[in-house]
Design a protein around this nucleic acid. Sequence first.
DNA 1: CACATAGATGCGTAAAAGCATATATATGTT
DNA 2: AACATATATATGCTTTTACGCATCTATGTG
Lengths: 107, 107
Amino acid sequence: MAFGMDRSPAARTVWLQGLKEARKACGLSQAGLGAKVGLPQSHISRIESGAVDVGLSTLLEISRSLGLEPIAVPRVLVPAVRSLMRADSRDGSPPPRPAYVLDDERA
Amino acid sequence: MAFGMDRSPAARTVWLQGLKEARKACGLSQAGLGAKVGLPQSHISRIESGAVDVGLSTLLEISRSLGLEPIAVPRVLVPAVRSLMRADSRDGSPPPRPAYVLDDERA
DNA sequence: CACATAGATGCGTAAAAGCATATATATGTT
DNA sequence: AACATATATATGCTTTTACGCATCTATGTG
């Protein structure tokens, strides 16, 4: 039937959920994260709740400020990449300590 | 100095460039891609040119229809993932043949 | 209670998404 | 060559929505 591919909040929830967890793993509040990337806390709230469809630029800023880089991975490689990520989170270091924040940590 | 982190077109260009190449590798026109994901060709044009800041939902739809899955990878693992992707694109199969399109290829 | 700190909500504005149309850029025909 | 035809990308304009500011509602804690 080819129904025009989901643009509902649920479609992006899994992604947003990941970012939210990453934020908490960094010990950041919505306001804290907002301050880091120059966004109002209100917007972070709406993004995480799926109320708005966040733009790519904002998504990149948020992800990177949490030590994450969004990469378009070929579908066949997704399992390999996920496995790589699981292995890494078992190395002994607690959560991925976002870095020892040098004021504006560019990357 | 902490200048409020780039939200300019240039900041997302590299990402968009990748999508554009993926589209061409799939032998799709902007209109063809638009039809697949239920978006007007005009919008694909503006997205690829960086004229607009594409939303996450749309980005996911486009990426997935091209056989790509956007994943937030911890920065330390980015080189490993990229290396994995390079290795895969050397396996003998020409471009990543988007799949043998079953009308609406959900995934 | 007062005073934090964390997240949500109303509203105005700038910008993304959508529709129609215009501009390439080929390829073919007389 | 000029003309048609087809396909690929860009642009003007309208509607919808992301983003930003202020405010409000939790949920603590002394």
